[in-house]
Each structure stands twice: as structure tokens, then as C-alpha cells.
Design a binder for these strands. Structure first.
Lengths: 224, 224
DNA sequence: GTCAACAATCTTGTATACAAGATCTGTTGG
DNA sequence: CCAACAGATCTTGTATACAAGATTGTTGAC
């Protein structure tokens, strides 16, 4: 074997989970993954442990690894944490944003706008993520930046289900606009409040969809 | 082997790091640890990966695992994140605290008071940690609770150096008192601001001590 | 005397082997 | 016909073996 396998495996699996190729609740078989990636179980296990630490999968001792399926409570709680983190990021960013951060944010916002114009929901996903990531970066605090990114990724599989709500993309973009205005005005308090609400609204929208998801999951469980 | 080794190993190493038996910057030798715990390298490696994910150690590829030694910048950034998290916890706790949370918080606060009365800095450490943990718990949000605990543990090795500052213990206790007042009054805004300041003050006090620590570390590096 | 290149040694990363717990299945008894 | 149990099978958790990169110490040239 040439180099290090574990990082590659972790990224590949992370991608599969975040992109939805691996569904929440699905079991990850070590030997199967080992065969698929052409490596032994050892680096697979190490990658799984890392994914478990970042909250994307759950390892149940002697039972195996499962893509995390957040229940309603945990999902709501996670969105609440995300909302608080985003609010903190917005507050700090408003105080500290440098010129290059401003430019990056404007660019990300424009990309969101383009997706809205085109009515392209698929393009809005990554543009939206990049917009939020630009705010994290604008805090100038790499630790906060990293934590926010980690949580963003952990919630990504769920966000995916959500922008299909009619007119949600347009509403989201309008909220981004309002956040940007506050950020550029240097008003941390308002920016924080708008960011918090923006995320919490997503979380709440979710609960409705979650009910459907749960029902579907249970139906699948009964059927299987 | 009987049961699962990895969790035991992780906890033991975590303890060694948090308690300061393993110094920041120190290298962790896999075979040495394996011999010490009477297991093979495999579970040791898995425990190290978990510790790396929780931020207590850093794994440099092909180089080994090292107890994280935060530089001035990272330390300040980590304290800033902690401050934001604590502020969020205080705000949510003020809004939601149940009777049992109130009781637990009062008890933890009393324990801090006892340590102050006795002038026992060693007893104040865990009492202080318990007080903060009681606030996290009072949010009723287990995800936030868990994240706050994780970060608290990661910063513990550094906090250890800090309460030796003259009268810091008394000042810390007075700040706790002020936070409790706001929490019990249900004033989330004030509680959040006080909690944030409380943590940031710790972080800032640190920078002075850090200068000394860095100087010492560099001296050691030169000497060794 | 200092620096650079090389070899011996050590450590990590990965593969494979094996033991023990979990799951599944087929059978038996009610 | 269903429930419970015993054996077989599968999967995980750990140990060990081996290969490749990193470290260290030595030697030789300048």
C-alpha cells in the first residue's frame, strides 16, 4: 500500500453519508466496505471511529456501525446548537469582518442568488453551505470555524430534505440578504438574531418533514 | 480478553491528560501504552483516534500522537468558543430551568462556596466544573450539553494552571453568584452576558500565564 | 570542526489470524 | 400454529505479522 488510506476512506464515507447515498439508519458492514475500497478492515475501522466522533455514524459495541438517524428530539436539539453557533459566528463576524471576508461573503451570496434566479434547488444546496461557511470564516476564529463546519456537515443529510418546501429557497435567500445587511453594517446583535432565527426556522420546518420521514421509516421497518 | 478494551483505555488516557499526568506536547508511544495497559496496539490506536477527535491529542501521520499543546492563538480561540457556548447555555437555561435543575445548580454553587471558604483550590476545580456542567444540563438540550462538556474537558489541562492567580477563586465564585442570580430571575440576556464574560476573563487571564508556559516550554526544548 | 549522506533502528500503517459475542435458522415442544 | 431453544453462521474486537516511512547515529568529505 502506498500512502495513508484512512483519510481517503473517511472522506469517501463522509461524502456518501452527507450526499445521501448512505441513508440514515443504514448499517455499515466492515468487510463489505473493506472489499469495496480494496483495503483490509483495519483502516475501515479507523475511518468509522472518526466518523463516529464527528457525529455522522454511531457505533454500537459488538453490533456494528450505523449512519446516524437522529430522532425528532435530537434533531431539534442539534438545530438549536447550530442556531446558537451561527448566531455567535454572525456576532463575531460583524465585529471583525475583513475586506476579503466581505468579498467572499458577497460572492457566496451572489452564487445563492444565481441558484434562486435559475430556480435550481440542487445548486442552492452547496451555495447555501458556502454562504454559511463564509460567515464562519469571517469570525477569524479557526476553532469556531471548524466546529461550525463539523456540525453543518453532520446536519447536511437532513437539510437535504428540506429545501423542497415551496418557496423555501426564496425565503432562505431573503433571510441571507437580511443577515448580510446587518453584517455589513457591523451590527452584531441584529446579525446574530437574524442568523439564529434563520437556522431555527429551518429546524422547525423540519419537524413537519420529520414526521413524514419517521412514518416512512417505520413503514419500511414494518415492511422489511 | 473479556470485554471491550477501547472505552477503558480512552477513559484512562483522557484522565491522564485532563489531570495533567500527561503534559501538553508529550508524545504517546503506542507500544509503550500497549505494554502499560497489557493490550495490543490495536485498541490503543482506536482509543487514540477517539481522543484525537475530542481534541485532547493530535495525531500527526507517520509521526505519532501528541498531547495537544494549544498555542496562544488556538487557546484564545477555544476560550472564545467556550464563552459563546456557555453564554448560549445560560440563555437557554434561564428560559427553561426546571426545579430539579435549579436544585442541582444551587448544590454545585454551594460546593464551590465550601471550597472558597476552606481556601481549597484543589477542591474548587471539580466544583467549578460541576457548576458549569449544571448550567449545561439545565438547558434541557442534551446535544448542547454534550458539546459543552467535551470542550470543557479539552480545556481542562489549561484551566488547571489558572486558578492559582491570587484571589481568582474568590472572583470566580462571585461571578458564579451573579450568573445564578440572573438565571434564577429568568433573565437570559444578562445571564448570557455574565457567563460569556466569566469565561472570557479566564481566557484573558490565561494569556499572561501562557506567555510563561511558552517560555518554559521553549526553555525545556532548548535544554533537552 | 561542521555538514551531509547513508545505514541501522524504530515507529507507524496495514493486513491477516483468531477468539468471543451477536444473529439467524431449523427444530422441537406445547 | 406459535414460542422457545440449540446449533450454525456471521460479525466484531483484539492480537500478531509485515511493509514502508521516519528518526537517529555514524562515517566520510570538505
Amino acid at each position: 500500500m502506498r500512502g495513508e488510506q484512512t483519510p481517503r476512506l473517511r472522506e469517501a464515507l463522509e461524502n456518501d453519508i452527507v450526499s445521501g447515498r448512505l441513508r440514515p439508519g443504514q448499517r455499515l458492514d466492515e468487510v463489505g466496505l473493506a472489499a469495496r475500497f480494496g483495503v483490509s478492515r483495519t483502516p475501515i475501522r479507523e475511518a468509522l471511529i472518526q466518523l463516529s466522533a464527528s457525529g455522522l455514524i454511531e457505533i454500537r459495541p459488538r453490533r456494528g456501525a450505523f449512519v446516524v438517524l437522529l430522532g425528532p428530539r435530537e434533531l431539534l436539539e442539534s438545530f438549536e446548537l447550530m442556531a446558537e453557533l451561527e448566531a455567535a459566528c454572525a456576532r463575531l463576524a460583524a465585529q471583525r469582518m475583513a475586506a476579503c471576508d466581505r468579498a467572499a461573503l458577497a460572492e457566496a451570496h451572489a452564487a445563492c442568488g444565481a441558484a434562486v434566479e435559475a430556480g435550481d434547488v440542487c445548486a442552492y444546496y452547496p451555495a447555501n453551505a458556502a454562504f454559511h461557511a463564509a460567515i464562519y470564516a469571517a469570525t477569524g476564529n479557526r476553532v469556531i470555524h471548524g466546529e461550525a463546519l463539523r456540525l453543518q456537515r453532520a446536519l447536511q443529510p437532513y437539510r437535504r430534505l428540506q429545501l423542497n418546501v415551496p418557496r423555501r429557497m426564496e425565503a432562505s435567500f431573503a433571510e441571507h440578504e437580511a443577515i448580510m445587511v446587518a453584517l455589513c453594517a457591523g451590527d452584531g446583535i441584529v446579525a446574530a438574531e437574524r442568523a439564529r432565527t434563520h437556522v431555527l426556522v429551518q429546524g422547525e420546518r423540519f419537524m413537519a418533514l420529520l414526521a413524514a420521514l419517521q412514518a416512512e421509516t417505520e413503514a419500511l421497518a414494518e415492511a422489511g
